[in-house]
């Protein structure tokens, strides 16, 4: 397949220098006439887990939407896998996306495997039906997130944590190279959060994924992210968890004191390393 070759060629081989998979340069974006992102510049290397933090209303979700091409920036350049959002439209099956909330009716008549199969829609293409390989990919993704045995269960009957894992399975059942996750652990209890993050870290390693994880929970990202980007409309910091969480500029971004988080965050990051 032409598109597959193009993306396969883009990624580095063994021993080669990792490529830049996401590149944003001086991005300005607005929603309903209000500027929500001002001059955001950063890049994500292949295989990196980038945590994006910032207070509510900082523009984190808009940032993901800009990367996906759902929000057109007023100014600046976006390149994903070396492609502009227009070119990327034909390569979206390499990007797994999990929105902040999926507002669905709990009685919606679909099972877990039906929901995961939705993720294959762009791989299958219009006017075509799911093949045996699509069904196999769905079964593998469900197994990878630990939901085997629940394939036929209606999605509305799953717990919050299980639903999040089902949506993660939907995001990885494509030919996924990049995962964009918007507050995926919001609303989960600590045990479910831990399980989700452990699962995500394992999948990242096994599948060689690049992950952009948006959260306002600094503690979670301090432990799992390779790099942290802190934004609050403008860009405040981009660096390792130790650098960002130990910095005075974090307080500036959140406009509040962070003694607890800075102490714990930097310590934990150091221990994990």
């Amino acid at each position: 397949m032409k598109s597959e070759c193009r993306v396969s060629d883009f990624f580095s081989g063994p021993g080669e220098t990792p490529r830049t998979v996401i590149e944003l340069e001086d991005i300005w974006a607005s929603l309903a006439g209000h500027t929500v992102l001002e001059g955001i510049t950063f890049s994500v290397e292949e295989g990196v887990f980038l945590g994006v933090i910032g207070p509510n209303g900082a523009g984190k979700t808009t940032l993901i939407r800009v990367i996906l091409g759902l929000v057109k920036p007023d100014r600046g350049k976006v390149l994903v896998m070396g492609m502009s959002p227009r070119e990327l439209h034909h390569e979206l099956h390499h990007i797994g996306y999990m929105p902040q909330t999926v507002l669905f009716d709990p009685s919606f008549p679909v099972s877990v495997s039906d929901v995961v199969m939705m993720g294959r829609a762009c791989c299958i293409g219009p006017l075509r039906f799911a093949s045996r390989s699509d069904r196999r990919a769905v079964a593998e993704s469900i197994r990878a997130v630990g939901l085997s045995g629940l394939e036929k269960r209606p999605i509305g009957e799953l717990s919050g944590g299980q639903q999040k894992r089902a949506f993660l399975a939907r995001a990885i059942c494509l030919e996924t190279r990049i995962l964009l996750l918007d507050e995926p652990t919001a609303g989960l209890d600590i045990e479910s959060q831990e399980r989700f993050m452990g699962l995500l870290t394992r999948l990242k390693e096994e599948m060689g994924l690049s992950v952009l994880f948006v959260s306002h929970d600094v503690n979670v990202l301090a432990r799992f992210a390779d790099e942290i980007l802190c934004i609050n409309r403008t860009m405040h910091m981009h660096g390792s968890p130790q650098e960002v969480l130990g910095s005075e500029r974090l307080k500036e971004a959140y406009r509040c004191e962070f003694d607890f988080l800075v102490g714990e965050g930097s310590g934990m990051a150091g221990e994990d390393a």
Binding site: L68, L70, H89, H90, L92, H93, I95, Y97, M98, P99, V102, F104, F108, V110, D114, V115, M117, M118, G119, A121, C122, I124, P126, L127, F129, A130, R170, L174
Partner: peptide, 22 residues
Amino acid sequence: LFFKELLFFVFDEETATASGVP
């Protein structure tokens, strides 16, 4: 012909859009 796209759209329009569903 568009059943899978329709189903994705009515279930979760945001992700369907992000996944390239027309």
